[in-house]
Amino acid sequence: MSSPTADVSVRVAWADDARGIAGVQVRVWREAYADLLPPAALDVDQVAEVWSAALTTGRDARNRVLVALERNRIAGFAVTMPAADPDCDPISDGEVAELGVAPEDRRLGHGSRLVQACADTLVADRFTRAVTWLNAGDDALRAFLTDAGWAPDGAHRELDLHGDGSVTVKQVRLHTALGPAG
């Protein structure tokens, strides 16, 4: 007799997913930036309003929001888009601008499914390379992405969390080739 399998998947986000995405994002950000972000940035209601607006208004055809589901509950999310860095080509370089899995849902395959769905989405949007930024000290995410075929490309930056230069986080950029293996 085989054991039951979980009902898990990844799909494009719907407007109704705003609150679920916000809940995951706030839990992830509390873990990464708890002492650095203003309280409003960690308020689920306010973050849900931003997601609701983003998911219901027109946006670039190659901007995508994906959600990882466990049954009908959002366990993680990702955002793909054309890469915005000045040294990237927005035609051929795509970016995983956000990637988050709720802390309680990690190590269950949601992150792997999201990364694969991001790659598939970026390939479908005709990108040939993907980039993503992560906090320089996030060794767990770096190891996860490195194991998935990503590597540092030498770029680094300081992310301004408050928009006024008072609080910054050092980040490194990783990249990977997209498409069929040569």
Rank of each mutant, 00 (worst) to 15 (best):
A6Y: 08
V8T: 10
V8A: 10
V10F: 13
R11D: 09
R11K: 10
A15W: 01
G20K: 03
A22T: 00
A22G: 01
G23A: 14
V24R: 06
V24G: 06
V26K: 01
R27M: 04
R30V: 12
D35R: 05
L36P: 04
L37F: 05
P38A: 02
A41P: 15
V44Q: 15
D45W: 11
Q46R: 04
Q46A: 12
A48G: 00
V50G: 11
A53P: 12
A54P: 07
T57N: 10
T57E: 06
G58N: 04
D60H: 00
R62Q: 06
R64K: 06
V65I: 03
V65D: 07
L66H: 05
L69Q: 02
E70Q: 07
R71S: 09
N72L: 12
R73S: 00
R73W: 01
A75R: 01
G76T: 09
V79A: 11
V79I: 15
T80Q: 15
T80N: 14
T80G: 13
P82V: 15
D85Q: 06
D85P: 02
D85C: 09
D85F: 12
D87R: 03
D87T: 04
C88M: 08
C88V: 06
G94F: 04
V96K: 00
V96D: 05
L99Q: 02
V101E: 08
A102F: 10
A102S: 09
A102P: 14
P103Y: 12
E104T: 06
G111S: 09
G111F: 03
G111W: 11
S112V: 14
L114Y: 09
Q116D: 12
Q116F: 15
A119Q: 12
A119G: 14
D120K: 14
L122A: 15
V123I: 13
V123T: 05
A124R: 00
A124Y: 04
R126Y: 13
R126T: 07
F127N: 05
T128Q: 05
R129Q: 12
A130E: 04
V131T: 04
V131A: 06
L134G: 07
L134Y: 08
A140D: 13
L141A: 06
A143S: 02
L145A: 01
L145K: 00
L145I: 03
T146E: 00
D147K: 03
D147Y: 07
A155L: 05
H156T: 03
R157V: 13
R157A: 12
R157P: 07
E158R: 10
D160S: 01
L161H: 01
G163S: 03
G165P: 01
V169W: 07
K170R: 04
Q171S: 05
R173H: 08
L174C: 04
H175P: 14
T176Q: 06
L178T: 13
G182Q: 15
